[in-house]
């Protein structure tokens, strides 16, 4: 399959994923008066999820340029 079409499909997947992350009812899981290192849980969750989406978008969009980074391939042992 064509690389571009695959990327488009991944982006549509991320769109759906973002809708799920930032919406009722998933948000209700984190909608509690609990603190993480002194910071309200919901605040932490929203910004963490936001950052996750940005990173995933970055990976999907810039995948080709990221792939050019050197990598070590080790022979895996049986």
């Amino acid at each position: 399959m064509n690389i571009r079409a695959r990327r488009l499909q991944k982006l549509v997947g991320l769109f759906v994923f973002a809708i799920v992350l930032f919406n009722y009812p998933v948000l209700t899981i984190f909608n509690r008066a609990i603190f993480v290192a002194g910071i309200p849980l919901l605040f932490c969750y929203l910004f963490a999820a936001w950052f996750l989406i940005v990173v995933l978008l970055l990976i999907v969009i810039e995948r080709r340029s990221l792939l050019h980074m050197p990598r070590n391939i080790e022979k895996s042992e049986n």
Partner: peptide, 20 residues
């Protein structure tokens, strides 16, 4: 409280569809 956020979360959600 967090009620200011949806205005910025909306664009974040739609951004992946821009190529489309």
């Amino acid at each position: 409280g967090l009620g200011f956020l949806p205005v910025y979360i909306g664009p974040t959600i739609i951004a992946p569809l821009w190529l489309l």
